[in-house]
C-alpha cells in the first residue's frame, strides 16, 4: 500500500474525465495516492455533472486518496481549496480567494468594473461503503487558457489572461500536492482557521439559494463540519451544508 510519500501518476494526453477514470481505477485496492492527469478533457464535469471547459493549456487532475476518517472527510473540500488557492497565489500574481464551499475565484480586470471570476474548480467524489471509503479530489485550474467561449467569459478567467504570462503546470501540480498533504495532516480546527484566511463570504450579505428558495442573510462563520452559518432576519441562525450562495 502506497503512502503519501509515494505518489503514482497516470498521464493521459486526452481523456473524457480524470474523475471518471479515477473512479474506475478506484475499484481495486492498489490505487491510494494516485494522480490521474490529462492535458485536456472532452467530458470534464463539476458539481451536478455540469460541463467543465477543459482545453489544452489548463491543468486537470484527480487525486485518489485512501480511506479518510469521516470527521476529516467533511473538510476534504476545504483542504483541497486551501491547497489550490495557496498554490495559485505562490506561483502567479493572482490574489485567488475561496468562495464557500470550494469555488476558487480571482479578481479579473477585463471589464469596466473589476469582478471575481472563477479560475479553478474542485469536485470531491467519494465512493462510500459500510467498511470501505475512497475519496477522489478532482481539480481543474485555468492556468494557460488564453480565451473562453462567449458563454463563459462573464464568469471565468485564467492565470495567463490576468497576468499575461504562462505558468508551468508541473510546478503547480507539484506544489498543490505538497500543500494538500501538509493540510490533510492538520486537525480540523487548523484547517478551518486557514480556510477562513482566504474565504470571501464571511461577514458579507448574501442570498442563499437552498432547494429553490432564496433566503437573504449575513454569513457568520463555518462550523466544524464545514457547514456555513447564516444569520437571517430576526437574528435567526441557520446552517447550510449544501446549496449555492449569491452575493447581494
Amino acid at each position: 500500500m502506497r503512502n503519501s510519500n509515494q505518489i503514482c501518476f497516470l498521464f493521459y494526453p486526452k481523456i473524457g474525465s480524470t474523475n471518471l477514470k479515477a473512479k474506475e481505477i478506484a475499484k481495486n485496492n492498489l490505487h491510494g495516492w494516485t494522480v490521474v492527469l490529462a492535458n485536456s478533457q472532452s467530458k470534464g464535469y463539476g458539481k451536478g455533472k455540469r460541463f467543465w471547459f477543459s482545453p489544452a493549456g489548463g491543468l486537470y487532475f484527480s487525486l485518489i486518496l485512501p480511506k479518510i476518517s469521516v470527521k476529516k472527510l467533511q473538510l476534504l473540500p476545504f483542504v483541497t481549496a486551501i491547497a489550490v488557492v495557496k498554490t495559485i497565489r505562490e506561483k502567479s500574481s493572482l490574489k485567488a480567494v475561496i468562495k464557500w464551499p470550494n469555488d476558487i475565484l480571482a479578481p479579473s480586470y477585463f471589464q469596466k468594473k473589476p469582478a471575481f471570476k472563477k479560475v479553478a474548480g474542485i469536485l470531491v467524489e467519494n465512493i462510500v461503503g459500510e467498511k470501505s471509503r475512497t475519496s477522489i479530489a478532482g481539480v481543474g485550474i485555468n492556468t494557460n487558457i488564453k480565451s473562453f467561449p462567449k458563454y463563459l467569459s462573464p464568469e471565468a478567467t485564467s492565470v495567463v489572461k490576468e497576468q499575461g504570462k504562462n505558468v508551468d503546470n508541473k510546478e503547480i501540480l507539484s506544489l498543490f500536492l505538497k500543500l494538500f498533504r501538509e493540510f490533510l495532516k492538520k486537525n480540523n480546527r487548523e484547517i478551518l482557521k486557514e480556510y477562513k484566511k482566504y474565504e470571501i463570504l464571511i461577514g458579507r450579505k448574501i442570498r442563499a439559494v437552498v432547494q429553490n428558495k432564496k433566503v437573504p442573510g449575513t454569513v457568520l462563520d463555518f462550523d466544524k463540519d464545514g457547514a456555513i452559518m447564516i444569520k437571517l432576519k430576526e437574528d435567526k441562525i441557520i446552517k447550510i451544508l449544501e446549496g449555492s450562495l449569491e452575493l447581494t
Binding site: 475499484k27 473540500p77 464551499p101 474542485i122 470531491v124 467524489e125 467519494n126 461503503g129
Partner: peptide, 20 residues
Amino acid sequence: IGQPVITLVAMKMENEIISE
C-alpha cells in the same frame, strides 16, 4: 456487492453510497 445505490451531496462533495 459494490453496486452504487444512492448519491448524497454535501458541500459540493458527491458521495456514491455502494452496497457491501
